Computed example of a mutant assay.
Amino acid sequence: MTQLTVTLPQAVPSPFRIRQLAGFVKEDEMTGKHIVVIGAGYAGLSAAAGIGRGPNRVTLIAPERRFAHRVRQHEIAVGRRVSRPDIAHVLRGRKVDHLPTRVVELDLAGRKVVTEDGKRIPYDTLVYALGSQVAWSDVPGAAEHAYSAEQAEELHRRITDAPAPGTIAVVGGGATGIELATELAEAHPSWQVRLVASGPVGGWLSARGRAHILAVLHRLRVQVDEARQVTAVTATGLQTPAGPIPADVVVWAGSLEPHPLAADSGLAVTERGQAVVDDHLRSVSHPDVYVAGDAAATRVPGIGQLRMGCATAQPQGRYLGKLLSGRTDKPFAFRYLTQCLSLGRGEALVQLIHGDDSMKPRVVTGAAGRLVKSAIVHALPLSLR
């Protein structure tokens, strides 16, 4: 009987390498498929970093060279320094090439991505993670006369360069509007800040959560105007059915809308413009396209439709990183943990919630709330890998 001796290398190889040594790996697996990720937000950058751990070749296409860290725009608006890691640093050691340009067209039939400089980049699999953008809601003058959260640096210069204090009108009673109003009021006490909302400010929160927000706004001398629908924005302020609201500076913090490229390219989308995906975040109309973040209309059993935001975008990106690098084949699973809002530098609200995003009565405020919120926002960039 012949004895077979097998000598293993000292370092334990990966399962992929074992299969390769045994001759069970196809040629296209050894070279890796080309996966293109578009968008470098919470979902896109997490996906690219995760996929880059596997055998596939990855190209990340996004104009930014630094991570935007969108949930801290209110801090940038008052001139605070915010840590924004280099994308190259996030992707260090991963098999990912970053192409710093903008995608303007998708050729889904030809499996190509078209960039603003005219390049046509082929892919085997596409990860669409362009996210969302400010929704001006067809309000006349809004885009011309108001600053969005994405224009935080320009907003900061406008306020600091003003010859004298005036009135800042923040439009929107959601999380972005609340965070901007409190931050601006605290940093610029000589300015009058008004928070203008079409509905109740913080109305989605528990009674305790909303009451705390209103108390902080009152303490910071923010004038709250609820049930005021803005019909136009002018150089001198806001127009509403109840009369004009004078303002020297207008900040637009209304809702967000998905980037239109998904609908324009022919992906199956909802009426809102989000791509319809299955339980693996794969487009139902184009199986070689995966969608993550604000661009995806994602439903999870027992949870329902997921809302836009980094709380869902980053877990989806991490999931695709595992799925497309061969580290999982399970459907996407998710539960909400909490909702957090900054209310200036000294205050915050941590709203406890159920897994389906419905509110619990309890909230955490004060120094404890601030510590929790700070820990979360500082941990986000660290968890991108």
Rank of each mutant, 00 (worst) to 15 (best):
P315G: 10
L306V: 10
A311I: 04
I38W: 03
P258R: 04
E116R: 10
K95I: 06
L130M: 14
S137P: 05
Y336G: 09
L323G: 02
R72Y: 00
R221L: 08
S148R: 01
A247C: 03
I35H: 07
A215N: 10
L256E: 00
F334T: 11
Q274C: 12
L306C: 06
A296F: 09
S342R: 08
K373D: 11
T298Q: 07
R57L: 14
W191R: 09
G110L: 06
D117E: 11
V170S: 03
G304C: 12
T31F: 07
P301H: 10
E186T: 13
A262Y: 00
K112M: 11
A162C: 08
A263C: 11
G369N: 08
A169S: 03
E150C: 03
W191C: 07
H69E: 01
V230T: 06
H286W: 08
V269P: 02
H69Q: 07
A333I: 02
V127Q: 05
K112H: 11
P163S: 06
R111M: 05
Y319P: 01
E144L: 12
P9W: 12
R345F: 05
D86V: 05
I18A: 10
A292N: 11
S374R: 13
F24S: 13
I376R: 00
A68R: 02
R94M: 11
T365Y: 06
K119M: 13
T176G: 07
A185P: 02
V372N: 13
A235H: 09
A109W: 06
A197N: 04
P244K: 11
I178F: 07
V193W: 04
P246T: 04
A368L: 14
G302W: 08
G366A: 14
A263D: 03
F334E: 12
A232W: 04
L130G: 00
R318T: 08
I51L: 14
D107C: 10
E347K: 12
D161K: 10
T160P: 00
R120F: 01
A88V: 00
W191L: 08
K119G: 07
L382I: 10
R157A: 10
